[in-house]
């Protein structure tokens, strides 16, 4: 019940904030642009008409989506806890008979709902293609959307943690973006790192692991990795919230 109350209040805060409209608009413009270019590329390359749209179109589209999400998610998570700290409402919330975990869960769910709404909007493109080309062979897309869902949970848990560390939204946003970019670039420096290290880093990279989902492959290892990632950052956030005991 408390989780639901916090979630509703956070959703209201999102609706009342102009940031959400800007974020959704930018997301839709960029995702539609990338879809258009991916579709053009697919049509150009698929002259024979034998190519699989999942491999030839949606895999690229999902890859582009994860890039856009990496850039815009900090704008959704940055205010979640830092704003409460700045306004001193966190102290007020803590005086109500609720647990830190309930506050966290409410905020997490509200952000995830907004995320799902944005992802839901991308279905327009999928539905359009399905209607044009028929529904056959699109089941692997479900794996792609599962991957995007897991990516969203990871980005939110990480963003929430950074937001819990500071009362300045801009610092939380930049910090979150920095960490996302680090996870993105983790496997790029092949010349510097050895093959072994690159293999190890690839296992840690959020974004590289998604490629299997986008190909339609759901690997238990990947799901376990994402689950551990989410749990670790949620635990960090809870610890950070409780660390008010150390505040001066």
């Amino acid at each position: 019940m408390n989780i639901l109350t916090i979630m509703k209040k956070e959703l209201l805060a999102y609706i009342l904030s102009p940031t959400i409209y800007a974020v959704i608009t930018i997301f839709m413009v960029l995702s539609s642009y990338f879809f258009y270019t991916d579709l053009s590329f697919y049509n150009t390359m698929n002259v024979a008409g034998t190519s699989n749209p999942v491999e030839g179109l949606f895999q690229f589209y999902f890859n582009d989506l994860r890039f856009i999400l990496m850039l815009i998610m900090p704008f959704l998570t940055m205010r979640l806890l830092s704003e409460e700290k700045k306004q001193k409402t966190f102290e007020l919330l803590c005086s109500y008979p609720i647990r830190d975990s309930e506050i966290l869960a409410g905020k997490f769910l509200s952000c995830f709902l907004v995320y799902l709404f944005m992802i839901f909007l991308t279905l327009i493109n999928v539905i359009y293609i399905c209607l044009q080309w028929g529904f056959e062979g699109f089941q692997p897309l479900l794996a792609g959307y599962l991957g995007l869902g897991l990516l969203g949970l990871c980005l939110i848990s990480c963003g929430l943690f950074i937001s819990s560390l500071t009362e300045k939204q801009i610092v939380a946003g930049m910090g979150t973006l920095g960490i996302f970019v680090l996870f993105w670039f983790l496997t790029w420096n092949e010349m510097m790192a050895g093959e072994k290290l690159i293999n190890f880093l690839t296992r840690l990279s959020l974004f590289d692991r998604l490629e299997f989902f986008f190909k339609g492959v759901i690997d238990t290892q990947d799901i376990v990795f994402f689950s551990i990632f989410i749990i670790i950052f949620i635990c960090f956030t809870l610890f950070s919230m409780k660390s008010r005991k150390l505040e001066v």
Binding site: K9, L12, A13, L16, S17, K86, Q87, K88, T89, E91, L92, S95, Y96, P97, I98, R99
Partner: peptide, 20 residues
């Protein structure tokens, strides 16, 4: 939690959710 049910608290210089 039991104590929090019995108390009412008004912190110093709080900026209560200005958008609500």
């Amino acid at each position: 939690i039991k104590i929090k049910k019995k108390i009412g608290y008004f912190p110093e210089e709080i900026d209560i959710y200005p958008d609500m």
